[in-house]
């Protein structure tokens, strides 16, 4: 269990929506019972909506990458930047528990990137993205982003519960991890729109039946778009790049709400 003492969890929730108890109340002796009926996700969801509206106004497409540690999120990003960084302006928000190594890897590609370190917390939330995006806009090139990529903390459980205001949620599983991740971590797959199977250049060395993993994911979420590729060998990678090109075109063509 990460973050078990709760000592860092105060820091990233600076904008709690406080509930107002409009429910009727009744008294028993001196105690009072009040109906609240309010979601604990409400504060984060409201901030996520405001993030999404802001991205829409600025005609930015935001995607949220979720996976276990080591599935290749940062490597995917590096190769994506190498291939389409000249035609699409990419900006990156990196989430990790400690260190800014991932942001440094992305900046080395000449792309604006900032690092959010959660200091123990196992996920990013919408208010962290709100602050992180404003910070990113001040970086060189941060004022003309077409595609914002949020690389979540490596964790297939907690990030699935928090809407960040992204337009598309993308879940990755790499070949060495095995094909049973959809069955074991269903929420990451039911809340995503895209499922990437990465490191397919390693298929000869691992028992990873791609059709079975695909089928299990589609059983949970029939509308998932599934792509399998290797970012390092480049095999199948064009499907992902074309997907991003289309996504940017679609959202940029849309009038802000």
């Amino acid at each position: 269990m990460c973050d078990v003492c709760g000592c860092h969890t105060h820091s990233h929730g600076d904008k709690h929506d406080h509930s107002h108890s409009h429910g009727h109340s009744h008294s028993h002796d001196e105690s009072v019972i009040v109906d609240i009926n309010r979601s604990l996700f409400a504060a984060n969801d409201a901030m996520a909506r405001s993030n999404r509206e802001h991205f829409d106004t600025e005609k930015i497409v935001a995607i949220n990458l979720i996976s276990s540690p080591g599935s290749g999120k940062t490597t995917l990003l590096e190769h994506t930047i190498d291939r389409i960084g000249k035609e699409i302006n990419i900006g990156v928000i990196e989430g990790d528990i400690e260190t800014d190594r991932d942001a440094a890897r992305i900046r080395a590609k000449g792309v604006p990137a900032i690092q959010l370190t959660t200091g123990g917390a196992c996920h990013l939330d919408a208010s962290m993205i709100h602050r992180g995006f404003h910070q990113l806009q001040k970086e060189p090139g941060g004022d003309k982003i077409d595609l914002l990529v949020i690389e979540n903390v490596g964790n297939l459980v907690c990030p699935a519960t928090f809407d960040l205001g992204e337009h598309r949620r993308v879940v990755l599983v790499s070949v060495p991890e095995g094909p049973d991740k959809p069955a074991k971590y269903p929420k990451a797959f039911t809340t995503s729109q895209v499922f990437l199977i990465t490191k397919t250049d390693l298929l000869p060395y691992f028992d990873f039946p791609v059709p079975e993993a695909t089928r299990e994911a589609l059983e949970l979420n029939p509308s998932l778009e599934v792509m399998a590729f290797s970012a390092t060998s480049g095999e199948g990678f064009d499907i992902w790049l074309d997907y991003l090109r289309d996504l940017v075109k679609t959202v940029r063509g849309k009038q802000p709400a």
Binding site: M1, C2, D3, V4, G6, T9, H10, H12, G13, H16, H18, S19, H20, S21, S25, V32, V34, I36, R38, L40, A43, A121, C122, H123, D125, V157, C158, T161, F162
Partner: peptide, 24 residues
């Protein structure tokens, strides 16, 4: 273990609900 952050959010709400109802 995002449950800890969610519980923290719950406690914050409980404080404001108690204030509104003058509860100790």
């Amino acid at each position: 273990m995002h449950e800890i952050s969610l519980v923290q959010g719950l406690l914050d709400q409980l404080h404001s609900i108690a204030r509104e109802n003058n509860a100790k």
